[in-house]
Amino acid sequence: MKTILTLQNLSKNYGYVKAVQDLSFTIEKGNVYGILGPNGSGKSTTLGMVLNVVNKTSGKFHWFDGNVAVHDALKKVGAIIERPNFYPYMSAYDNLKLVCKIKNVSVAKIDEKLAVVGLLERKNSKFRTYSLGMKQRLAIASALLNDPEILILDEPTNGLDPQGIHQIREIIKEIAAQGTTILLASHLLDEVEKVCSHVVILRKGQKIYSGRVDEMVASQGFFELQTEKEDQLISFLEQDASFGTIKKEDDKIIAFLTAPLSAADFNQKMFNQGIVLSHLVKRKESLEEQFLILTENQSN
């Protein structure tokens, strides 16, 4: 598989503060990556370093096969960092024309990409007249101008209203569906969970996990159960070898699996025992729960 970005022991210190420490990971073509971490964990600094705006303290990184200068490699990348940055007194079209010039792409792309984000009819309005949602969509259009090998988004839904958040997510999903590699930095876990196949998790500038989302925690998932005969159910679950921890949350019983077991098989088994379930849901830990498990393990 083609490698797009490689980081080797990349570090950044701001004075005594170690913003990023010894970070190594690779981005492969065709996947959707999430960089996760709480505020101040080094996500933006990491992206800043690979995007040529923050100087690294030590370590290495290279784009593609490493044969081109960083600023030339960036012409094949589309990136939005924090809030959308454009010349406020210029129209959307003129702003994008400037980007075309920097990236050496044809200006014919401008209308095409403005249509993707639904801003075509406002293309001659000055940037400063745009709402925040429109600005963010324009930023995405700008990042897409060169049909990038990889799209990098840093907190793309920050500060948007629910409608704006929804629009941006739909656009991201559309782009991901076309096979574009995406790197999405966010502290909103459900956002990452909805679109990403791979994650890199950072905490205090250090990597604590990188890999597939579904392999993050070795877990078989758990059942959420409800029944009239609670005591009978709990004593049965405690004797069964395929269940580990069992706890009661509100009016539901949560039973964690230690071995694979399908919901249908489990239901059949219960029925045979004479226990009728009024509620049965099999779930895996959400990314949020997995994230908390991982960060807890690390701090112990």
């Binding site: 995007l51 705006v53 200068a69 600023h71 490699a73 960092i81 940055n85 010349y87 400037l98 920097i102």
Partner: peptide
């Protein structure tokens, strides 16, 4: 000054302009 305050300098670099350019 506007390149700094509008952060267009940052965006231009991200878009692939070099600092020398």
């Amino acid at each position: 000054g506007n390149e700094y305050s509008n952060r267009t300098l940052k965006q231009n670099l991200i878009d692939g302009l070099s600092k020398k350019e």
